[in-house]
């Protein structure tokens, strides 16, 4: 029983991390109808920038304070991600307004290749360490309830907590601020939003900035777990089933989808994996998402797709 609970909790926590990446997809898709394949590359780029600047800044300024270095690196990375967002809107999206979904999809794949290339050219292609002081040691919980208790990675716990915080912050931003309302208006109907004076291009920059920040947070968390390295960009592929399961247009969907996928993945890997040779995590998530899609083609929380002839 305690082993099952351990698996379940592990799944929930990795699920939270998936939702963090999935959030980036949902934000951009909601506001601009672009399925942003570059989200993974953005995570990698942000993580690399964070890792390298926190390494470089102490060298440049000759100081030895880890906290200050991280803070400055974070600030610079935020600026970097804002620049990326601005450039993407300016150089790519602006010219591709009203193109087909497939073309936009391919354009974001182009952005992904470009960011991968630029990131590794500027920041290097080794594995870099991100040290933001995440606790590494595992802790035992609920020892008085189960025999032996449950072993939990503190790092995962903190990460899940930060993700949850980010989600709450984003929800407030979307629901309560004027910019958030404008974003939701654009998401509902581009033309109507434009006609009441919401500037589309500025909204898109903002959305890409917000997605850039979620990418940065995801990059820092994933990066301090696995190290900032090229394989981070494949995290996006792990997060895709989350997005379609939860629905492309729904923020809560990204969270709940992430939890379902995280738990499904872990449990299948532990209980089903040994029977078929292991390593089934990655496709099982897709199959799971597909099963849900067969019953709800728009995802669990997506807006209903209505066809008119």
């Amino acid at each position: 029983m305690s082993f099952f609970l351990e698996t379940l909790l592990g799944g929930l926590m990795s699920g939270m991390l998936y939702s963090l990446v999935a959030l980036g997809f949902v934000l951009i898709y909601k506001a601009s109808g672009v399925f942003n394949f570059a989200q993974g590359a953005m995570v990698l780029f942000a993580a690399l920038s964070m890792a390298r600047f926190s390494e470089w800044i102490p060298q440049w300024l000759g100081m030895d304070n880890l906290f200050m270095a991280n803070l400055l690196a974070f600030a610079i990375s935020v600026v970097v991600m804002f620049t990326v967002a601005w450039l993407v809107e300016r150089l790519v999206l602006r010219h591709l307004v009203n193109q087909e979904g497939a073309t936009l999809l391919m354009a974001t794949l182009g952005i992904a290749y470009f960011l991968d290339g630029v990131g590794q050219t500027i920041f290097g292609s080794d594995i870099y360490k991100i040290d933001v002081g995440m606790p590494k040691e595992p802790v035992m919980m609920l020892e008085n309830i189960f025999e032996g208790g449950i072993l939990i990675n503190k790092e995962d716990f903190v990460a899940a907590f930060i993700s949850a915080l980010l989600v709450v912050a984003l929800s407030i931003f979307f629901q309560k601020t004027a910019t958030g309302r404008a974003l939701r208006a654009v998401a509902d109907d581009h033309q109507a939003a434009q006609s009441i004076g919401i500037p589309l291009d500025r909204i898109w920059v903002i959305v890409w900035c917000v997605a850039g920040i979620t990418a940065l947070v995801a990059g820092i968390i994933w990066g301090s777990k696995l190290g900032a390295q090229f394989s981070l960009s494949t995290v996006a592929l792990r997060a895709l089933p989350v997005v379609i399961l939860g629905g492309l247009t729904s923020v809560p969907g990204a969270i709940i989808g992430g939890l379902i996928i995280g738990v499904g993945e872990k449990i299948s890997e532990v209980y089903l994996g040994p029977m078929v040779g292991g390593g089934i995590e990655i496709w099982f998530a897709y199959m799971l998402a597909l099963m849900f899609l067969l019953f709800r083609p728009q995802g669990l929380f997506g807006e209903k797709i209505i066809d008119r002839v």
Binding site: L91, V92, A107, L109, G110, Y113, F114, D116, T121
Partner: peptide
């Protein structure tokens, strides 16, 4: 690295 960078940029350029 520069190769995939230019590849990506050319793809975008071409699509535009």
């Amino acid at each position: 690295h520069v190769e995939i960078m230019i590849f990506g940029a050319l793809i975008i350029f071409f699509l535009i």
